[in-house]
Design a protein around this nucleic acid. Structure first.
Length: 827
RNA sequence: GCGAGCGUGGCGGAACGGUAGACGCGUCGGGUUUAGGUCCCGGUGUCCGCAAGGACGUGGGGGUUCGACUCCCCCCGCUCGCACCA
């Protein structure tokens, strides 16, 4: 091996093969003494080769397991593939192949790139969610949910992607567009399978307390908003004309006396009944049809005018017996609350806009005040916007004068006493729609029997395999599975009569909601071994993109809570700590083939090697920040790795042209120890960019000592060893090779992480800043343990300080040994 | 509109309330080399100055402090998330 020039290609290939052969990174199930760490990266979808986002995520995700292994932990760091999904079908349609072919080819490609990158995976427990050995257990879990009523089928208006010809979960609709293909999503009334995640809304919210500080505030806030808990009251109104009750949900029961009209969602069943056969029927019908034709985006656009029609009916306000008109309007949503509201235009902006447009009464029931609390006269006519804030009640009969919070409590209690309402909590979260009309997914293990109804496929008949005889994967709105008679036509497991199989497949987010449990051991007889799960879970460090903030991360939390209730796992949260890497973009835009700005990790590896590829992306900036590849160059770290190579080789063997050793160099020793302390600290806090910069400083310091003939042979070797060990989690290949250069025979990745001597982390001397009135006027070198008095007199002795003082008396002296003296003059 | 975050050299970015700009890119100068590249050394926030030195400087304005990139208030700009949720 050339000591002047490091050749990554040859070295990396050698070690990648050796590590794999030795199973170097396997978790040890038999060892019960070492503390266990479960480090997990969000598994990839095999859409091609790994992209730059993967390079960043997996490079960062590999640091902690490598560090912890060296610190003596028993580490589980697994990998697999989230391999069901739509792109496989689209590729199959385009190429005329089977989705499976495309998927498994891509998995092979990605696996090879992972090996080249040298990520420390335990390859003995890898799997794909599209393997029958895996999806059998996805089906098994579905049946456990179904038995408990947590998986159910119902007809409801659902999100329909006209391009992909399948339904979508609410979480997969982004601003009214399909998450996958960006097509405008439509609403359709369909019978679909749901998971009852709403039953866990409160617990999903409550348990976030234990994730506080361990997950980013951003993700926690997003989940909190998505679950969207509101407290208030449900209040029963009565239709004057028919006597029928109609319920509303409100967060402001204190404003009940300000309700001047009543609004139903256009789809509310009562609306249809109220207008039937009357003079308003035609207008209402026309209105509703127009609303239904609108896409989600149009309807939800906040800028556009609210529209509605009067239904010719009235309701009785339960608090004051007033009759108020009933309207249907597009700003009231059928899915939220009860699909009906009491409108209080004076104190709700939406109601206000609607009232102004249609000339409806605005009545103030909260006393407005000036900034200093002085009441101002009520003047609803001149209002230009609603007044949603706090205050005391007016125009509210017996409740006048009460502050808002108290009024809410009192009015709610009184409604309850009279049987006209009750305190209520509402969530924005909807049940999770899990069925898909597509081929490449996990079949739902249900049989529809004309005599017995829905029947679960018995456990011993799992897995329900995807039919192999399906050839047309084009989306047609009905699952392609329905085209296989052999798949569909079955006998009922309960009565033996003719029956049909469910042909929808599951959302792929079901597959990924429990995969982390399966990695604890590929149990042939169960989804997972509870003892092993208890030993490894929850995941100590979960690394992945923030784009899953509410999809995968919410669903997985829900799954684990259900499994906890089923007695299958002893914990209620799957991921103790979450780390989200930023995005990798190019000139500010997402990288993509169509934009032509794609940079592929394999291209970087070909040119510079895997170590440099990993270091480059981690050095580019804080791990959680976005990286613009246009701003990044691997040249700097490539040069640095060459410097590391030469310095360690020289320190190890004395080869090379550098000067011979001289006496002891305490400065080098101290630098090595300080770097040990700081890099350990940085890595544990995921500050990879600053860890790398400190390792560069150590490399430069060692190189200088070698060139200038400073330091004993032992000191140089120690500094070189530390450099190699500290760099090992970031650049596994070159460090493995250098570890041998230093005379070791076993892997650096199983070597003990270095300690530092606190005594030796002290600097030899410190620069002390001398300030006059906060401005730096001089700098002096002092010993780290210099005394306060000594500093004070040194400062006053400085000619530059005296010049700056210009004879003015010193009123105060601030001394911060050993770093700073500030002389404050009067005034 | 609501919520969160961020504004530091030509660029990516460093800075427990205590030397602003670590480290790297780029660039300029020098050395090695037949040359190019590599490698090595040095300079590189702005302005004034031959220099010594000085003034200014972390989006803008105010405040707290002996001392503010850092803490507080207001404003401007950008990014992300949610967005008619009653």
């Amino acid at each position: 091996m050339d000591v002047d020039r490091y050749d990554p290609q040859q070295v990396e290939a050698k070690w990648a093969a050796a590590w794999e052969e030795q199973g170097l990174y396997r978790a040890d199930e038999s060892d019960t003494t070492r503390p266990r760490i479960y480090a997990l990266d969000m598994f990839p979808y095999p859409s091609g080769d790994l992209h730059m986002g993967h390079l960043e995520a997996f490079s960062g995700g590999d640091v902690i397991p490598r560090l912890k292994r060296m610190q003596g932990h028993n580490v589980l760091h697994p990998i697999g593939w989230d391999s069901f999904g739509l792109p496989a079908e689209n590729a199959a349609i385009k190429r005329g192949t089977h989705p499976k072919t495309w998927t498994y080819q891509n998995i092979d490609t990605q696996r090879a790139t992972f090996h080249r990158l040298g990520i420390s995976f335990d390859w003995s427990r890898t799997f794909n969610t599209s393997d029958p050995d895996y999806y059998r257990w996805t089906q098994w879990l579905f049946l456990r949910f179904w038995e408990r009523g947590l998986a159910y089928r119902k007809a409801s208006p659902v999100n329909w992607c006209p391009n992909d010809q399948t339904v979508l979960a609410n979480e997969q609709v982004i601003n009214g567009h399909c998450e996958r293909c960006d097509a405008l999503v439509e609403k359709r009334e369909l019978t679909q399978w749901f998971f009852k995640i709403t039953a866990y809304a409160q617990r999903l919210l409550d348990d976030m307390a234990e994730l506080e500080g361990r997950w980013s505030d951003k993700v926690l806030t997003m989940q909190r908003n998505w679950i969207g808990r509101s407290t208030g009251a449900e209040v029963d109104f009565t239709v004057v004309e028919t006597g029928a009750p109609v319920r509303v949900f409100t967060t402001r029961p204190d404003t009940l006396f300000g309700a001047t009209f009543f609004v139903l969602a256009p789809e509310h069943p009562l609306a249809e009944r109220l207008v039937a056969g009357g003079p308003h029927e035609a207008a209402f019908r026309a209105f509703r049809e127009r609303v239904e034709r609108e896409t989600e985006v149009e309807r939800l656009s906040a800028e556009r005018d609210k529209e509605g029609v009067f239904l010719g009916a009235h309701v009785v306000n339960p608090v004051n017996g007033e009759h108020i008109p009933v309207w249907a309007a597009d700003y009231v949503l059928t899915e939220y609350g009860t699909g009906a509201i009491m409108a209080v235009p004076a104190h709700d902006q939406r109601d206000f806009e609607f009232a102004r447009k249609y000339g409806l009464e605005v009545r103030m029931v909260i006393q407005p005040t000036t900034d200093d609390g002085t009441p101002v006269p009520l003047d609803p006519e001149s209002m230009t916007e609603a007044m949603p804030g706090d205050g005391r009640l007016v125009n509210s009969g017996p409740y006048d004068g009460l502050p808002v919070p108290e009024a809410i409590a009192r009015i709610t209690a009184d409604l309850e006493t009279r049987g006209q309402g009750s305190a209520a909590i509402n969530f924005r979260l909807r049940d999770w729609l899990v069925s898909r009309q597509r081929y490449w997914g996990c079949p739902i293990p249900i049989i529809h029997c004309p005599a017995c109804g829905e029947v679960g496929v018995p456990d011993d008949q799992l897995p329900v395999l995807l039919p192999e005889d399906v050839t047309d994967f084009k989306p047609k709105g009905v699952s392609p599975l329905a085209t296989s008679a052999r798949f569909v036509e079955v006998t009922c497991p309960t009565c033996g009569g003719p029956a049909t199989r469910e042909t929808d497949t599951m959302d792929t987010f079901v597959d990924s909601s429990w995969y982390f449990l399966r990695y604890t051991g590929l149990d042939p007889d169960r989804p997972f071994d509870p003892d092993r799960v208890a030993a490894w879970m929850p995941v100590d460090q979960y690394t992945g993109g923030i784009e899953h903030a509410i999809l995968h991360l919410l669903y997985s939390r829900f799954f684990v809570k259900v499994l906890h209730d089923l007695g299958m796992v002893p914990f209620t949260e799957p991921f103790s700590n979450l780390l989200n890497q930023g995005m990798v973009v190019m000139h500010g835009a997402a990288m993509s083939k169509s934009r032509g700005n794609l940079v592929e990790p394999t291209a970087i590896i070909d040119q510079y090697g895997a170590d440099v590829a990993r270091l480059t992306i981690l050095f580019a900036g804080p791990f959680e920040d976005d990286v613009d590849w246009a701003d990044v160059s691997p040249e700097g770290v490539a040069r640095w790795i060459q410097r590391v190579w030469r310095a360690v080789n020289t320190a190890a063997g004395g080869q090379g042209a550098e000067a011979a050793e001289a006496g002891s160099d305490l400065g080098l020793v101290r630098l090595a120890h300080r770097t040990t302390r700081d890099v350990t600290d940085d890595l544990e806090r995921f500050r990879f960019n600053t860890a790398i910069s400190k390792l560069m400083v150590l490399t430069n310091g060692l190189g200088e000592a070698l060139r200038n003939g400073r330091g004993s042979a032992a000191e140089r070797r120690d500094a070189a060893s530390r450099l190699v060990l500290l760099l090992a989690p970031l650049a596994p290949f070159v460090t493995e090779e250098l570890w041998r250069v230093l005379g070791n025979t076993s892997s650096v990745h199983l070597a003990r992480w270095p300690d530092h001597d606190p005594e030796l982390t002290r600097a030899e001397s410190v620069t002390c800043v001398l300030q006059v009135d906060g401005k730096v006027r001089d700098r002096i070198e002092v010993e780290p343990e210099v005394g306060e008095e000594e500093l004070r007199s040194a400062a006053l002795a400085s000619a530059k300080v005296q010049a700056a003082l210009a004879g003015r008396p010193v009123a105060r002296v601030v001394v911060v040994p050993p770093k700073l003296v500030n002389l404050v003059t009067g005034a």
